[in-house]
């Protein structure tokens, strides 16, 4: 297995706040990696630094063995990285189908129209509700449906690497289950590598190969997902700061 994505000592700061304080992670081709952590731990910032929405202050990011320094944010879709951001961010006044089609915009020069159509069909199989509502405005969808659309929009570019930012955020348990089933299916059927950022530790660990725990901008624990799932520290760290760990 070759290394698809490597973050090396990444530091990101927003003015006075340092959001990432030297984060290193690694994702091999075909893996699902989970990054867990509480609010404000820097999970979303990490994904944004990968898709070059926020600049690195220090450190390096390698994708397929090459440093991405010379690329612009809008080149990444072409390179095979799809980012499904926190809060879905579908375009509310565009139809479901338009939203989906835009997902392939950056990749239009590497994909054939037939490929896109085929992928779209596959996405409609994954999320049949999107097919039913393809002519509806995305803003009229429910939260869960919007999440499905956001994931679909990321998938239609046939990415090598899918960045998923809190796909279960604010969803009812039944929908959370559905989304995670879909993630598993996506991975099985397309072989896409996935970097999954989650608050829902148990679910995320169940689907991933390897996991990192991010705490206030630093990786505090890492290991194979199956090991972490049983780890008491994860439960504690997950629920909050490390101080709870101290208590026990």
């Amino acid at each position: 297995m070759s290394e698809l994505l490597v973050l090396k000592d990444v530091v990101v700061s927003y003015g006075a706040v340092t959001a990432l304080k030297g984060v290193s992670i690694k994702l091999n081709e075909g893996q699902i990696i989970a990054v867990l952590g509480a609010n404000g731990a820097g999970k979303s910032t990490m994904l944004k630094s990968i898709s070059k929405i926020v600049p690195l202050k220090e450190g390096k990011i390698f994708y397929k063995g090459k440093e991405m320094a010379s690329l612009s944010a809008h080149d990444l879709a072409f390179q095979g990285i799809s980012h499904v951001p926190e809060g879905r961010r579908v375009f509310p006044t565009l139809t479901v189908e338009e939203n989906l089609n835009l997902g392939s915009y950056g990749a239009r020069k590497r994909l054939l129209d037939e490929e896109v159509e085929e992928t779209k069909k596959w996405i409609f199989e994954l999320f049949p509700v999107l097919a039913e509502r393809k002519n509806q405005l995305a803003g009229t969808l429910s939260g869960g449906e919007q999440q499905m659309l956001a994931i679909g929009r990321g998938l239609i570019a046939k990415p090598t690497l899918l960045l998923l930012d809190e796909p279960s955020l604010g969803l009812a348990p039944i929908l959370v289950k559905e989304i995670f089933n879909a993630i598993r299916k996506i991975h099985e059927e397309s072989g896409t590598s996935i970097l999954l950022v989650e608050q829902n530790a148990k679910k995320a660990l169940a689907e991933s190969d390897y996991a990192y725990i991010l705490e206030t901008g630093k990786i505090s624990i890492e290991g194979p997902a199956s090991e972490l799932a049983g780890d008491e520290r994860v439960k504690a760290a997950y629920l909050g700061g490390s101080a709870v760990t101290k208590k026990e």
Binding site: S51, I53, S72, A73, H74, D75, L76, A77, F78, H83, P85, R89, F91, P92, T93, L94, E98, N101, L102, G103, Y105, G106, A107, R108, R153, A157
Partner: peptide, 24 residues
């Protein structure tokens, strides 16, 4: 057209449009 959708998407959310590979 998809190009038109890209224009509308840019107006709605520049950052998201960039992430989809739209050159804002």
């Amino acid at each position: 057209t998809t190009f038109g959708a890209a224009i509308r998407a840019t107006a709605l959310d520049k950052e998201m449009a960039t992430m989809l590979g739209i050159d804002v």
